[in-house]
Design a protein around this nucleic acid. Structure first.
Lengths: 192, 192
DNA sequence: TTCTCTAATTGATATACATCAATAGAATTC
DNA sequence: GAATTCTATTGATGTATATCAATTAGAGAA
């Protein structure tokens, strides 16, 4: 098995045959990135989804006013990419930037379709992953509806304990949708 | 075919065999509700997902302070339910309330598992649906990060033209995470 | 129709937060 | 180690929006 981490990840959710896993491995490519480099930028036509083997990335959009909005962080064992572009063929507006030197595995759109057709167990695997992602996004929406900044920051720290220490505070503030100054003040009230 | 609407919906996303659709139909139950009645309330142990044949519902949570937070509306051809409870067996905190007299089709957890095992095409069908739901939730998160209330209200009206006229303004305000008073003022600036 | 109740609007005030600006502290580079 | 750049903190001010309170409009019931 060339990439045991991803095989382990698949086995955590479904029960694949060895041949399924070997097919998967044959359809993957390795990607290495330095800190601050981009996996994806608007305009790029390359359509892949990525599995993080090692490292940390942030996914963000820029709006018309030039403001950045972080939609997701990703660390080891996370899939990351632009579902909308990948899945519906829409042009991507997403930036995928490495916060740390990172190693990833990529799968192209064509290869994923091939995987679905030849090893349907992966339909289930991705259905489960997307369902979980859907649930955690819903929690995030609910959190912005019902909680103040302090509570949301604490929730972020407990939900993503591994990410919190690897990401700059202004990026966390951005993810939470508040100004870095405000997050700084909120953090001060927590040190007591 | 007992329930042609749901068969049409499935065919919109995948290419099922007739036997697949007949199996689906045999696993569904009909539900009728009056306006203001509940399909689901916290504590209810019934674990179903629902397809709206006719009518309109709202899905919301109550927080510790007793405030309501609408997470989703649903009209014809939408699936609605509590994925987290349904999928992970967590106790449900969700309210599902009919805004109009509604007719729905329900599928139980056991029946859905049976469906997946006997007609794997439905793995793909639900994978696609959940992926689309994930994408639209992501758009909603992005919208709250980058847009002001007026822009979000306009976006809501264009994204859900069928829902806007069927739902009270204070429910739309709640969905958007703003006060009804503020939405009222915003709407006034639009009448020119 | 008239009454009643709920929803929508409008006004006045309070508050959380953004923004601008300056400084202090870390980290990176040479 | 010094210099430079990036990050975090702190202060002062402005603004959007929540909240409280009152009024008007509209919808449904008798």
């Amino acid at each position: 098995m060339k990439y045991p981490v991803i095989a382990d990840h698949v086995r955590r959710y479904v029960a694949p045959k060895d041949s399924d896993l070997e097919l998967l491995q044959s359809l993957l490519n390795e990607v290495s990135m330095g800190k601050g480099t981009f996996l994806l930028q608007p305009g790029t036509q390359v359509m892949h989804e990525y599995f993080v083997v090692e490292g940390c990335l942030k996914a963000y959009y820029m709006d018309e006013k030039g403001s950045r909005h972080i939609i997701q962080f990703a660390i080891e064992d996370w899939w990351i990419g632009d579902f909308d572009a990948y899945f519906n063929g829409n042009p991507s507006r997403l930036y995928l930037e490495a916060i740390e030197p990172s190693r990833l595995l990529s799968i192209s759109y064509e290869n994923l379709q091939k995987l679905y057709d030849e090893a349907p167990i992966f339909e289930r695997y991705f259905r489960i992953l997307v369902t979980n992602a859907f649930i955690s996004q819903r929690k995030r929406i609910l959190s912005t509806l019902e909680k103040d900044t302090k509570a949301r920051y604490l929730e972020f720290c407990t939900s993503y304990p591994n990410i919190e220490n690897r990401v700059a505070n202004y990026d966390i503030a951005n993810y939470l949708g508040v100004s870095p100054e405000n997050l700084s003040r909120v953090r001060r009230t927590l040190k007591s």
